[in-house]
Amino acid sequence: MTAIMPTTRLHLNKREITFLVPLYITGTVALISVLISLLFLRSGGVPGSADWIAGSQLNPGMAYALPGFLVYLGVQSVATTFPFALTLGSTRRSFVGGTLLWAVIASAYLTAIMTVLTLIELATDHWFSNFYIFDIAVLGAGDLTRLIPIVFLSTLSMLTIGGVFGASWIRFGGRGPQFIGVGLAIVIIVALIVILPAAPTIIAAFQVWWLAVLAAVVILLSSIGMWLILRTAIVR
C-alpha cells in the first residue's frame, strides 16, 4: 500500500483532469439537455406530461459524452504517465497498483457526483422546470440502486480499458493498440457467431445484472492485462 500511494498521487497530481473535466463535460451535457427540453417546449411539448417524461428520459447524452473522455483518461494514465513514474523510481508493480487505485477513486468520485446531482434533481422536482438530466433511462431512471453500479462500473471499465490500450502502446508502440483492437473484434465476432443461434432465448432471459457481471469481467481482464503487459515493459 505504501508503495502504490505515490503513483496514485501521481495520477491525482493533475487535479483538473481527474476532478474538474468530468464536471465540465457533465455540465455541458446538462446545458444541452436543457436546450433540448426547451426545444420540446417550443414544439408544443407539455412539461410533465407522460410524453414529455418518456422523451426526456431517453436522452442518451450522458452515455455519449463521458466515455470518450474516460477512455482517453485511462489511456493517458498509462501511456504518458508510466515513463515518468519509472523516472521517479516507481516499480512496475506499484505503478499498476497505484493506477488501479486511482481508477477506483476517479470512478467513485464520478459516481458520488452523479448520485448527488440525481438526488438534487429528484428533490427539486427536476430543477423546478421538468428538466430530466440525470433521471434518465441509461442512468437507471432515478433509481439509485441502479445508478450507482451503472456509473461506477462503466467508469471503471472505461478507465481500465483505456489503461490496457495505453499499456500496449508503451510495450509494443503503435502496433500495440491495433493488435488489441483487432483481437477484441475477433473475440466479439466469434462470441456472436457462437451465441447468435441462441439469441432469442438469451434476449428473453436477459437480466440487467448480466451487464454488471460483464463490466466486472472487463475490469478484471483489463487490470490483469495491464499488469501482464507492463511487468516487463521498458522505457526507450
Binding site: P6, L10, K14, I17, Q76, L88
Partner: peptide
C-alpha cells in the same frame, strides 16, 4: 524524458517529493 500530458513545472515539483 516524457512527461504526462498537460504537465507544467509545478506538477513536477509537487509530485517528485512523493517519490
Amino acid at each position: 524524458q516524457r512527461y504526462p500530458d498537460d504537465y507544467r513545472l509545478h506538477h513536477v515539483l509537487r509530485i517528485a517529493p512523493a517519490f
